[in-house]
Design a binder for these strands. Structure first.
Lengths: 346, 346
DNA sequence: CGCTGAACTGGAAACGTTTCCAACACGGCC
DNA sequence: GGCCGTGTTGGAAACGTTTCCAGTTCAGCG
């Protein structure tokens, strides 16, 4: 009724009982049914709702978990965030979004800022890591779950996928289709995903060195535009070597760039050039031709990370855990026999 | 050094000065340079970082702002969130993501939950509103900025766009290209966007009733699949009426569905059927053909909302403000003369 | 030299909650 | 009937911070 919010003290006064009993009746345990009834009535009447700042201070819990990534707009991270939110929300935790900044140092700084205790835990997916950052994370003042590398040996809860193996799946899929001149379209090598995927490609193609296989181009960025530019280089036989009959892209966006570059040159996809992407994004599913893509289970990784966080927050102080989400190849039009309604000429 | 975090009291003891002076030296004003120096040294030595829960309790501020939408995964909302984050972060505010739930009631409940004071303000974009919700928002315990309808008359800060006018822009663009049989592909009419866009189409086509113009189809959903199904009905002349030569879609995803449906039937886009979308999503920009789309300035609306929030939080208690972001037509391949490398037959 | 006021400092209260601890009532058991 | 344990209650402390208020110092000025 009054314009100022009711506090627990006022509820207590209104109910004619002590502050302690009021608190117990509303949240805690050890109050008689009569007391609970009485207090609840008073609370309802006053429109009481507990102030979380006081509660946080006393309980040393904020009921908040942070999710930090470099680029919140990236669909992969959006999926993770959504999944994390879905897991945590039913447990009464709110999700705070943070940005790590692009550098290792800014990420370190963020981890240090957890000392302010504005969240109970952090889920972070750093673009780049180094030993200092790992150490910083291990000694962080609140639990941290890392999405990216396996770090359980370092005493850090972590979730990872096998993007290298995923690239391998794509390569073998293409080989199974009879493609022999498989090129790799990657993003910057100084990023964790860039490096891992490169490793995967090298491993998958190393053993059979058919000609052309192993050709590579690096895009400046994991975007369509950069992919288009790099794919052009890949498809224009500059040194007389044979044109690739398949392109493995490190990313769905790069893959779309590759499809465009192929079409520019009058090449059919997948007839002349088969293309695979990675991440299984909505954009790739909807594109024409729909993209064969290696899902790295973004949502699944988010869920796993959230669950690790819940375990950790529940206080079951145990050894650091690691969850690995297997990559999964999803075959669609960009490598399959038919491309659907689009008519690509030979 | 110690495993337990240093508190302000310990810093004070360590520096040999009072608690009050310590606080002033670190944050407030009115401390001598010598004092500041001394305290800062002590704080550094102890690795002190202020605890925000204590601070929040005392200052009655959480330095957090919530952003609530029904579907966090929706690209439009992702853009808004990113923009809000970018505006708020430099001012020291963190962003908390919440989901409103699909119904008006669940949104009301969320607004009421703000009584717990876990955020200093709320930016919300409700899918549906009614008078009760508006009233709930007006009397909310913390400032609320609504993205959606203009509500300044009701005493609520708000940001809106003119999606009806945007549809009008699309219609006039197509008319300017000589298209006369313009069909409308909309989503469910019981949503705020669905209703507004329908109104826009009716207004734009009402005055000139060329044959075929005004044909409509409703998709079950704002998705590609639903758009494809509905667009098929639109393009198959079931009652002998002429086939549309243009489709205005209420959404980029619906527009993609329309493009697919056209191609299924061997129709060229834009030669036989021109298609426009709405929202200017990445997916539409990257699609082939790239989609002509009406941008509703998601990022801009997010920024505007964030700025309104900052004004309000700065306490310049003024009348409720309203910001309108004009729609902007972006012409691309799906209506322009050329469709680029894709070869559409006939 | 005394007075005023500015600049600075320290003590203590306050924010709203949970929880420790002591006190109390009461039923059951010896 | 006394005693013990269980169940319930109230007083008070505690969480970590900011800020009010009073007190102190000291320079400047009459």
């Amino acid at each position: 009724m009054t314009s100022t919010r009711a506090t627990l003290i006022e509820v207590a006064r209104h109910a004619g009982v002590s502050l302690a009993s009021t608190s117990r009746a509303l949240h805690g345990t050890g109050a008689s049914p009569a007391m609970v009834e009485r207090v609840r009535a008073a609370a309802d009447e006053l429109g009481y709702s507990p102030d979380v700042t006081g509660r946080s201070l006393r309980m040393k819990k904020t009921f908040q978990v942070a999710f930090a990534v470099a680029d919140i707009g990236n669909p992969v991270y959006v999926e993770m965030m959504t999944a994390i939110h879905e897991v945590l929300e039913p447990h009464g935790f709110r999700v705070v979004v943070l940005s790590t900044g692009p550098t290792v140092d800014s990420t370190s700084e963020l981890v240090r800022s957890l000392g302010s205790r504005f969240v109970d835990g952090l889920v972070v997916s750093p673009l780049r890591t180094d030993d200092a950052l790992v150490e910083e994370i291990r000694s962080a003042p609140v639990p941290v779950v890392v999405i990216g590398r396996a770090l359980d040996e370092q005493g850090i809860d972590s979730v990872s996928t096998d993007s290298a193996g995923g690239i391998g799946q794509a390569v073998r899929h293409l080989q199974g289709l009879g493609r022999r001149r498989i090129a790799f379209l990657n993003g910057p090598l100084d990023t964790t995903p860039g490096r891992a995927r490169q490793r995967g490609f090298d491993a998958a193609t190393g053993r059979e060195g058919s000609d052309g296989t192993g050709t590579r181009a690096l895009a400046d960025d994991f975007t369509v535009a950069a992919g288009l530019a790099a794919a052009r280089r890949l498809l224009d036989p500059q040194d007389g070597s044979a044109r690739p009959d398949a392109i493995v892209a490190a990313n769905d966006l790069l893959a779309i760039g590759a499809v465009r570059a192929a079409r520019e040159r009058g090449l059919g996809v997948p007839t002349d050039v088969a293309v695979t992407g990675m991440d299984d994004t909505e954009i790739g599913r909807v594109y024409e031709p729909s993209l064969t893509s290696v899902s790295l289970g973004s949502a699944e990784r988010g869920r796993a990370a959230a669950r690790l966080m819940l375990d950790r927050l529940a206080g079951d102080a145990a050894a650091a855990q690691h969850v690995a989400i297997g990559p999964r190849l999803l075959v669609r039009e960009s490598t399959a026999g038919t491309t659907g309604p689009t008519k690509e000429g030979a």
